[in-house]
Design a protein around this nucleic acid. Structure first.
Lengths: 229, 229
DNA sequence: GAGTAGAGATTGTTCAACAATCCATCAATC
DNA sequence: GATTGATGGATTGTTGAACAATCTCTACTC
């Protein structure tokens, strides 16, 4: 195993040179969306964006396709692309799959590597620090990182990708209903206790707590959703 | 429910007029791949395909994107697109997620609508009929439909999409190792018994059987994989 | 007020060209 | 003889323009 550093280089290279213009444009748009500057339902006209970003229409369309694949945009034939608007049904489905993946993560916790558990703890800490400083947007980001780390306990690249897309859509939900503080504050303590239950190895109690956690969050969001209509 | 046929029309129309040329080209390629005429690892040169299908490079690239999203093709920057080649690691991950989704389907069986259970039964029957007639490729198709119906018991559009992509990749695995008969034949009886356990409502036994089923299949494929190297 | 016709705007698709990158080949050096 | 470096051909990435198809809104007719 004298050449193990070769593998590291091979892995690092992947993230370096792979940058097409389309991918960079997609990064740009993704940031606008996850930051909430592009609200759900907003239309993205090709030509305006091409002029703004100074790329050709073909390249812009390629960037669109990347974000459609991530479920951040939806493409309607002959009508254009829009920031995805999550419906009440979509929200229910979102939580259905979150329950499946995150609960599986909890069940896998005993077999998970230490780094994976450390990331869970780190996300909780980040959230608490951000709350103490009043940075509520960062609290939301930390919360998402926490749930991502939860599903990552499964140790499956494919599950990682699924949960990443799922939680990116959750960001859309949050932006569509505003008020990050009221929503995220109560869950800081629950994240902490969930993390401790897992660290203690009590996966059964952790799964129960997680389910009630997700039920509560879903009910709260659904209520806000129905009210918004 | 007097106007339920209206919904059917609405659904059918979706598949009719909303068909860009890129989507049709993608259909063409998808068929070539799932039928095994395009083997895993094969490169798809843009210009050759453009000339063959008589579409422009941009349209062809759009078709590529669609199939990349379905995980049938992989796109390497500045190198081209290739039929996905599933590695041994990828195979393990594939089964890890199949276990999660299909076992969840079994657990949801008591709450599933009758049509969903009927589709399960239908897939088993199709497989048995195809086997009796010696159509082993169709046996494989029926097997995939069976597992798709299993995950569909969850009743989540998102899970449906996940399992569809997963099983499309499984087709690649099958093609990479050939010999459909030897592999699929033993599982016909197990599909049948699994289906009966579910129909009887014994979800606990069904889940145990499904896990051992998937373990066996994974072990068999993994062995064949290692041998092929 | 409902329905229709048409103009203007936007998207779908194609084409041709050039730039950037990869790949195989060959020459040069040690 | 093997490794390194340069060369050229082939393929992909990106651009801009053009035209066709479709949608959307306005104005008009009844």
């Amino acid at each position: 195993m004298a050449e193990s550093w070769l593998d590291e280089i091979a892995a690092a290279r992947h993230g370096l040179d792979r940058s097409s213009t389309a991918a960079r444009v997609a990064d740009l748009l993704r940031e606008q969306i996850t930051d909430g500057r592009l609200v759900p339902g907003a239309r993205l006209p090709e030509e305006d964006l091409c002029r703004a970003v100074k790329v050709s229409r073909n390249t812009m369309r390629e960037a669109f396709r990347l974000l459609v694949q991530e479920r951040l945009l939806v493409h309607e034939f002959n009508r254009g692309v829009f920031v995805r608007r999550v419906t009440a049904d979509g929200l229910a489905d979102l939580y259905r799959v979150r329950r499946i993946l995150e609960c599986e993560g909890v069940r896998c916790a005993p077999d998970a590597p230490r780094e994976a558990l450390a990331r869970l703890e780190a996300a909780v800490l980040d959230g608490e620090r951000a709350a103490a400083a009043g940075r509520w947007a960062d609290v939301g980001t930390a919360d998402i990182r926490f749930h991502q780390a939860l599903a990552a306990l499964v140790g499956s690249p494919r599950v990682d990708e699924m949960i990443r897309h799922l939680l990116a859509e959750m960001r859309l939900v949050f932006h569509e209903m505003g008020s990050p503080r009221e929503f995220h504050e109560p869950y800081l303590a629950r994240n902490r206790s969930l993390c401790e239950l897992i660290a203690r190895g009590d996966t059964a109690a952790a799964e129960r707590e997680l389910r009630s956690y997700l039920d509560d969050a879903e009910a709260q969001l659904t209520k806000a959703y129905r009210a918004a209509e």
